[in-house]
């Protein structure tokens, strides 16, 4: 699945904030699990870094209290959808 423009922006944020120099943002599959070793192999501290970056970039504050945090962080597609919905809900 090709990335949507929103997913492209989120992919760039993730690659930038985690310094994944060897990962091209456009190569991240929107449906692949990011936190598994065969995905990007991210861990909980990466999730913390991503949450901080999303707060700075989108003014959206992620919380473990959000319905299904694990699913939100699971894939680029889910994360982008959640953040976009939060931004739209505010507008």
């Amino acid at each position: 699945m090709p990335q949507t423009p929103e997913q492209q922006r989120m992919a760039k944020l993730i690659v930038d904030v985690l310094n994944l120099e060897d990962v091209a943002p456009e190569s991240i599959d929107p449906d692949a699990i990011m936190f598994e070793d065969d995905g990007l192999g991210l861990d909980s501290i990466d999730a913390l870094e991503i949450a901080v970056a999303i707060a700075e970039e989108y003014d959206v504050h992620l919380s473990a209290e959000d319905e299904g945090t694990k699913e939100i962080f699971a894939t680029l597609g889910n994360l982008t959808q959640h953040v976009t919905e939060e931004v739209n809900a505010r507008a």
């Binding site: 949450a51 919380s63 209290e65």
Partner: peptide, 30 residues
């Protein structure tokens, strides 16, 4: 409750502040 993300910590301390006069945060440099 949840306490991992900064927003969770903010929510937790705000909620505890309603019933306790002071709150302690136990955490790491990260």
């Amino acid at each position: 409750g949840p306490s991992f993300f900064p927003q969770d910590v903010a929510r937790a301390t705000a909620q505890l502040a309603q019933s306790t006069p002071a709150t302690v945060l136990v955490t790491t440099p990260v």
